[in-house]
Design a protein around this nucleic acid. Structure first.
Lengths: 341, 341
DNA sequence: TTGTACGCGTTATCAG
DNA sequence: CTGATAACGCGTACAA
C-alpha cells in the first residue's frame, strides 16, 4: 500500500491538517514542523492521491488537448509544445484525436474536458456556432483560430502571406497561384485576407485562386494540375505536405522546380524532407502550444488574443520567375524584407 | 451545479446505492426501477464524477502512453492508434512526450502512470535494467520492444529485413549497406539479427554495416556519405526520414536514385513525400497502437507477446543493380516473394 | 500556529 | 433485489 497523508502526519507526529498545509502552503506552518513533515513525506515516498485531491479541491491538475489528427505534423508539433509546457507546470495532458470529425471534437471536449482544469481546442473547421455551444463552465482556449468571446492563441497568417508574396514578387513573379486548404478552415480564410492585402500594395501582381484542397498529399496533386492549367509561375500551398505533393506532380508533368515554377510551403513541418528543400512560412508550433497552455492557465479575459509571428524561410523551391513568362525580375517596389531573418 | 448521483436517486425515488447499481450493473436491479433511474439520469444530464469513482473504486478510466517524441511520425501514428482504440473502450489517454530522454521516461511512467489504469511505454532505448526497475503495481505494456517478464506488442523486424533483402537480392544487388538506428535501439538490434539471417540464405550477398545514426534527417545525410564510401549499390535505412535525407545527399553527390543506388526506407510514415517514392518496410502503426491497448486491458500474462506482421511496399526508390558494379541481375535463388503483397 | 471534523461523489459491504 | 452505511484520501472551515 502506498503512503497516505495520514501516514506522513503520524510519522511526523502532527495532525493530517498540518501535514497537508506543510506540503501545500509551507508558509503557514512553523519551520520546525514543516521540516519534520517534509522529511517524513520524503522517507515514506509520499505521493498525493490526485483523485482525492480533485474530489476535495475541484482541481484536477490535468489539461485536455483536442486535435483533428495527431498524425498530421502540424498538430503533432503542437502536442509537443503543449506537453512540454504542461509538464513544467506539473500538469498532465489528455490528448484526444477527433479523427477529422468536428462533431466528435465537441464530444471529446465535453467528455475529457470534464476531467481537466481546462481545454485546448485546435479545430480549424468547427463552425462558429458549434464553438459557441461548447460548455463555458471551464476555461477553454482556441488554438490557431479566433472566436468572439473565447480566448485564443493564433498565428499571424496575414503577415505570413505578406512575406511570401513579397518574396515571390521580388523574384519577378507576377502571376501567383494560391492552393487553399479545406473550405471552412479558419486559417485558410485568414490567409486569403492576407493575400488580398499583400497583392494590393504590389505592382502588377495577380493572385489566382486555385481553389480549396484537402490538406493532404492528394490535395497537392490535384492542386498541381490546376496550377499548371492556370499558367502561374509560382504557387503558395496550404501546408508542406500539399507543397511536396504539388512539386512531385508538377515534375512528373515535365516542369522543373524552381526553374519553371516556384513553390512555397507552409508550417515548416516536413519542408526539408523533399528536394528541392521547400521555401516555407514557418509556424512556431512549439511556442504556439506553450503559449496556449499559459493562456489557459493565466485566467486572463478573452481579449486581447495572443498572436505569434511567423517567418518566411527561403530555401531552394523558389527562384526568379522564368523570363519567358513576363518581364525580367526587377527591383522590388518596397524595401526588401523577403529573405530569411 | 451539475447533477450528482444523489440527485438522480432522489428524482427516481430510490436510494443512491440502487441508482449506482442501476447505472453500473443494470442486471442487478429490477427492470422497473432501472428504467426509473435511467430516465432520471438522462433528464438531469447526469455525468458520473470520475474523481469520486476513482477514489472509491480505484479505477481511473484512463490510460497513459509515454513516447520519446510525439513529433516523430512513427510515434504520432502510434498515438493515433492508441487513441482510437481507447476511445472505443471509453478510456481517456494521457500522452507524455519524454523528449528523447530515457531518464524522463521513467519519471513520466511513474507520475502519470499513477493516474491511469495502465501504461503503454514506447521506449526503444531505455535500458533493460531501467525497465525492470519500473513499478510493477499497475499493468504495463511495452510497445515495439521486448523485455523478459513484461508484456509487449512488437513488430516482426526480422521478417521485414528478410523481405527487404530478398527484394534487393532479386534485383541483382550483392552489396547492401545498412544504415542503422541509434545504438541501443531495440528494433535496430532485431533488424541486425534479421539481416544476418536473411543474408545467410542468399547467394553471394554481402551486407555492409554502415554504422549507427540518429533517426533523423541529419543521420541520413551522414549515412549517405558512409554509403558512398563503402561502394554499396543499395541501402537499407532505419526509417523513412533517414532514407529521404540519404536520397537527398546521395543525389547532391551526383548519384541517381534508383539508377546508381537503391534505397529502402522503413515504417511507411513519410515514404511517399519525396521523389522518388520510397520503397519501404511498412509498419502497421495504428494496429500496433490498438493491439497495445487491447493487450494492456485484457490482463493476459506477459507471454506470449503479440507480434504484428510488416509488409514491404515496393515503390520507385529501388531498381535493378547497376550493371557496372557486378554481375547482371539473375534469377533469385529462392521463390520470389519480394514484391508487394 | 495547530488540531478536529466534515464533506467532496462514488462504490462496495452487509443486512434485510 | 434493495437500502443504510462505511470507506476512499485530501482540503479546509472552524475552533482552540
Amino acid at each position: 500500500m502506498v503512503a497516505t497523508l495520514r501516514d506522513v502526519a503520524r510519522a511526523a507526529g502532527v495532525s493530517p491538517a498540518t501535514a497537508s498545509r506543510a506540503l501545500a502552503n509551507p508558509e503557514l506552518v512553523a519551520p520546525a514542523r514543516r521540516a519534520l513533515v517534509e522529511r517524513a513525506a520524503h522517507e515514506l515516498g509520499y505521493r498525493p492521491n490526485r483523485a482525492a485531491r480533485e474530489l476535495s479541491s475541484g482541481r484536477t491538475g490535468n489539461l485536455c488537448l483536442v486535435v483533428p489528427d495527431v498524425a498530421n505534423p502540424f498538430f503533432a508539433g503542437l502536442v509537443k509544445g503543449v506537453q512540454a509546457r504542461a509538464r513544467e507546470l506539473g500538469y498532465g495532458v489528455f490528448v484526444a484525436d477527433a479523427d477529422e470529425d468536428p462533431h466528435l471534437e465537441a464530444d471529446l471536449v465535453a467528455q475529457l474536458g470534464a476531467q481537466a482544469d481546462g481545454t485546448l481546442l485546435a479545430s480549424p473547421r468547427m463552425s462558429d456556432e458549434d464553438i459557441a455551444r461548447l460548455s463555458e463552465d471551464r476555461p477553454l482556449v482556441l488554438v490557431n483560430r479566433r472566436h468572439p468571446g473565447r480566448s485564443s492563441v493564433v498565428v499571424d497568417h496575414t503577415d505570413g502571406m505578406r512575406q511570401a508574396v513579397r518574396h515571390l514578387h521580388a523574384l519577378g513573379h507576377r502571376r501567383i497561384g494560391f492552393a487553399g486548404g479545406p473550405a471552412g478552415s479558419w486559417s485558410d480564410a485568414r490567409r486569403r485576407d492576407g493575400l488580398e492585402l499583400a497583392a494590393h500594395g504590389l505592382h502588377r501582381l495577380e493572385v489566382v485562386d486555385l481553389g480549396h484542397f484537402p490538406a493532404t498529399a492528394g490535395g497537392g496533386t490535384a492542386a498541381a494540375d490546376v496550377a499548371a492549367a492556370a499558367g502561374v509561375t509560382a504557387v503558395l500551398a496550404h501546408n508542406d505536405l500539399v507543397a511536396l505533393a504539388l512539386v512531385d506532380r508538377l515534375r512528373s508533368r515535365g516542369l522543373s522546380i524552381p526553374q519553371d515554377v516556384s513553390v512555397v510551403g507552409h508550417d515548416d513541418t516536413v519542408a526539408s524532407l523533399g528536394s528541392p528543400r521547400l521555401t516555407t512560412v514557418a509556424v512556431p508550433l512549439a511556442r504556439l502550444g506553450r503559449a496556449a497552455v499559459d493562456r489557459l492557465l493565466d485566467g486572463a479575459p478573452p481579449e486581447p488574443d495572443v498572436a505569434l509571428p511567423v517567418e518566411l524561410l527561403v530555401r531552394a523551391s523558389t527562384a526568379p520567375a522564368p523570363a519567358s513568362s513576363g518581364t525580367a525580375p526587377r527591383p522590388p517596389e518596397t524595401a526588401d524584407e523577403s529573405e530569411t531573418r
